[in-house]
């Protein structure tokens, strides 16, 4: 799965640590999501969508299988 988390975060001027604190997860988890090494659960993806005020499908999209 591909995502635009890094880009959206940068637009808001937040560091990974800032975003991690807002989502109550570790900074390493944010890094793993941004680098595509970990796909978040639906609840966490929805939290991200709410935080960025975007529809979830504009943040995450299917990658190559």
């Amino acid at each position: 799965m591909n995502n635009h988390v890094r880009q959206l975060r940068s637009e808001l001027g937040w560091s990974q640590a800032d975003l991690a604190q807002r989502l109550d997860v570790s900074r390493q988890t944010i890094n793993a999501i941004e680098t595509g090494k970990y796909d978040p659960s639906l609840p966490l993806a929805f939290k991200l969508a709410r935080l960025f005020d975007r529809a979830i499908e504009t943040i995450f999209e299917p990658g190559e299988e």
């Binding site: 640590a17 570790s26 390493q28 090494k37």
Partner: peptide, 11 residues
């Protein structure tokens, strides 16, 4: 596997 350096995480 998830790119985490477990030896020196923030927390």
């Amino acid at each position: 596997r998830y790119g985490v350096d477990g030896f020196c995480t923030d927390e």
